[in-house]
């Protein structure tokens, strides 16, 4: 690095640190979830060799069909998460209470709702929002974090034994969602992508678009906010999508992705102002890893 030295006390850094109490509580919440029996019936896990083959063929690993969940645990996790959000979002307490009430009154069945999220049934989730007259933004936020402990468990379970991922796609190797944030190691320069939905991480080429795999440097650019050299946005002029990236000295395994994902909101605004967009995190682009849509996408990016 010559000119791009890490600015350790930038404005954005300081403000991301304001999320520390929330990030700490969230971490503790996820840790406590790990002690619970989340699945009654575990996700389908192929033999190691089959999983390796699936990955080398671009098929992500998590297939939600056939999983079983513990209703009591789902309900407990949902209510605990709502309490946590209430603590940190004082001005949205009423909206969060409305969600909690709908769950207590069983207008929303936690288990069914959770399955809808895990199966990426976006339309069903939007129906729940409409039927119960809930705030869309906060409900979506809640939905993603409600499913996280389950998806994260699935990620760890399915990646067991796979030391080095043979994975060269931009979407998550476990759940198929697009990456939420990119981490660039400030020592080695390696880029790691992170999945907001299941907390999986995978290495991905620095000079390639994670969405359309474009490698043309004329159409793949970096946007840097002024005086914020550690924060950047990779924009693709071909597919018009963007990815937030943080250049950090903190190793991937210790990097607080959630905190940085949430704290780098200004980068999203900048990208959108420039005409770039990000797809909804609630659903995946391809409903499952077996479908023809995913195959067609892979064929398209390979021949483009």
């Amino acid at each position: 690095m010559n000119n791009q030295r890490i600015n350790s006390s930038s404005e954005m850094d300081g403000n991301i640190d304001k999320l520390n109490p929330f990030a700490s509580d969230l971490k503790e919440f996820f840790e406590s979830c790990k002690t619970l029996p989340l699945f009654k019936k575990l996700p389908l896990r192929d033999e190691l060799e089959v999983r390796k083959q699936r990955l080398s063929g671009g098929r992500y690993l998590f297939r939600p069909c056939g999983i079983g969940l513990h209703p009591n645990e789902s309900n407990k996790i949902a209510l605990e998460l709502l309490e946590l959000l209430k603590k940190h979002l004082c001005d949205r307490k009423d909206e969060l209470s409305a969600i909690a009430d709908a769950m207590i009154q069983e207008k929303i069945i936690a288990n069914d709702f959770l399955l809808q999220i895990i199966k990426n049934e976006g339309n069903q989730i939007r129906k729940v929002i409409r039927d119960n007259n809930l705030a869309e933004d906060i409900f979506t936020f809640f939905a993603i974090y409600f499913a996280r402990p389950f998806r994260q468990f699935a990620s760890e379970y399915l990646l067991e034994g796979l030391d080095k991922l043979n994975w060269f796609s931009g979407y998550c190797p476990v759940c198929g969602h697009w990456p939420g944030l990119g981490h660039i190691n400030s020592e080695g320069g390696q880029r790691t992508l992170w999945c907001l939905s299941c907390n999986s991480k995978w290495n991905f080429k620095r000079t390639q678009c994670a969405f359309c795999l474009n490698e043309d440097h004329q159409t793949l650019q970096i946007l840097n906010p002024e005086n914020e050299e550690s924060y950047r946005i990779q924009i693709c002029k071909k597919c018009k999508r963007y990815l937030k990236e943080v250049r950090s000295i903190i190793e991937v395994k210790n990097f607080p992705f959630d905190k940085y994902y949430l704290g780098t909101l200004p980068l999203d605004v900048i990208a959108e102002q420039k005409g770039y967009f990000q797809e909804s995190m609630l659903t995946v682009r391809y409903e499952n890893s077996e479908g023809n849509e995913l195959l067609m996408y892979r064929q398209k990016v390979e021949f483009d």
Binding site: K18, L19, E136, T140, V269
Partner: peptide
Amino acid sequence: LGAAGASTLGGAITLIGL
């Protein structure tokens, strides 16, 4: 960039949800 941080969590919810 600073102002966004003061309401970061609230802003982030908007970011994810809308």
